[in-house]
Design a protein around this nucleic acid. Sequence first.
RNA 1: GCUUCGGUCGUAUAGUCCGGUCAAGUAUAUUGGCCUUUCGAGCCAAUGACCCGGGUUCGAAUCCCGGCCGAAGCACCA
Length: 501
Amino acid sequence: MAESLGLSLVKEKVKQPERTLPPLPNLEKHGRVHVRFAPNPDSVIHLGNTRAAILSDEYAKMYKGLFTLRFEDTSPSIKPPVPEAYEIIRQDLRWLGIHWDEEFIQSDRLPIYYEYAVKLITLGGAYICKCTSESFRKRVTKKKPCPCRDLAVEEHLHRWENMLNGKTRMGGAVMRVKTDLAHPNPALRDWPAMRIDTKAHPRIGKKYRVWPLYNFASAIDDHLMGITHILRGKEHEVNMLRQIYMYKYFGWSYPDAIHYGRLKIEGTVLSKSKIRQGIEDGVYKDWSDPRLGTIAALRKRGFLPETIRRLILEVGVKPSEAMISWDNLESINRKILDPIVKRFIFIKDPMEFEISGLDKKYVAKIPFHPDHCDWGSRDLTIDPKNNKILIQSADNANFNECSHFRLMNLFNVKVDCAGKGHLVSNSVADAKALRAPIIQWLPTGLSMPLRIIMPDAKMALGAVDPMTSKEELPSTFQFYRFGFVRVYREKRRLIGYYAHA
RNA sequence: GCUUCGGUCGUAUAGUCCGGUCAAGUAUAUUGGCCUUUCGAGCCAAUGACCCGGGUUCGAAUCCCGGCCGAAGCACCA
């Protein structure tokens, strides 16, 4: 008695409290927390991109702060925005459960950037450089100023006018922010802030010919929008250093920035440009191709927003790179899904199998969920006249001659040396004694075909319980001994996308 | 090459700031057991890590130095 009590005490495990994010720095300095997510609408978002969004959202909620969504679409030529992407990104964010308080699109804000460009030039913090990028780079690597740098402010304002009014052609001039030519990192020296791009912007056309570069637009906006904390990848570390020079000219103080390492997921490409290329080349079907790590793909396969959020929170904000395993992601999803989705029978690569020795009608009750009897069950029947069933070819291949198996929730079958099946007994105890594997099955008359797209984009064909088509679709189910599948109605048929086992 | 930032079980993460309670916790994975009329989930157990070398210290995963390895950046992209 005492022993058992002691044992149960020892065995009682203290559940770890759910992981929480570390506190944000300098809270007292800033007042109300204000974060932002600033995607480039040149394509949809993927798992890696959600990191900034989810972390920002978590912090906004944690501190009851504000969240700004800002589309950074200031490159008509090199990373042109995709008009549909704005709304697709909004939908992906909503699906992820992210709430934003305000939204901006940078291509609507050109007059603001122009205003601050003039201010910065007037302040002597920026100049218009007419050097070619090669000749500028040559000088700057030697820590030498280009000839434009020390010209009078009036000249630079004049050059700026020429950029705007079309007298200077594309590539003819660029606005640079003065930094420190002696800075050990050449990447920081007099970085470009504005350039001419005459290509039509997919969203607002040819209204403007001078466009801000990332560091300029982003830095101006972060200040003007009152951003207190920035969460972004460490590829932006030097950008912060660049932008700080500009903040100093304006007398602004830079937000607190947290730079996390890149997120990778094993065996999956998480690069927008590679994904886009793959779609263009026809390697991938579209943005939701099951091989991709896009939000669209994960959603299609039945991954839940909560799964993605938990994963991001678990990985946290470390500056080192993180290689996520699908095992981990799947495990999180499985634990959420398992107790809440219905189960059905799916027979992959079905084959007919005849059972002899039936003396009466047998009924198997297949529960819709083993842990929720109140969800009901599905009756599968077999009788002497209808004694053919469907089983998985792979299961059949595993039967050695003269072996046994059990049909799920029905009875035990002996396979004779000719490969024929005979009913031998009913009880589970017998099945265990015989070490008979238990397999899922369907009566031959009761099945409908189902194509399931697997994570590698290959197709699995099989027979599914037709009752699935009576369910509200799309819906995610667990197919006994097969895995979790999200089932969609496609015209008059069903199609499934496999999530994981 | 240059600049910056990192390196804890296979993977992810806690601990590192403020040395001792860390002969290093947790999740996942794998293996075994229990439970369950299957699978899964759940429960129990096992496996498995402080990059290397010096130094400081009574004591180093934690501090210092050197090395090795890795990542990010070095665009008129974001």
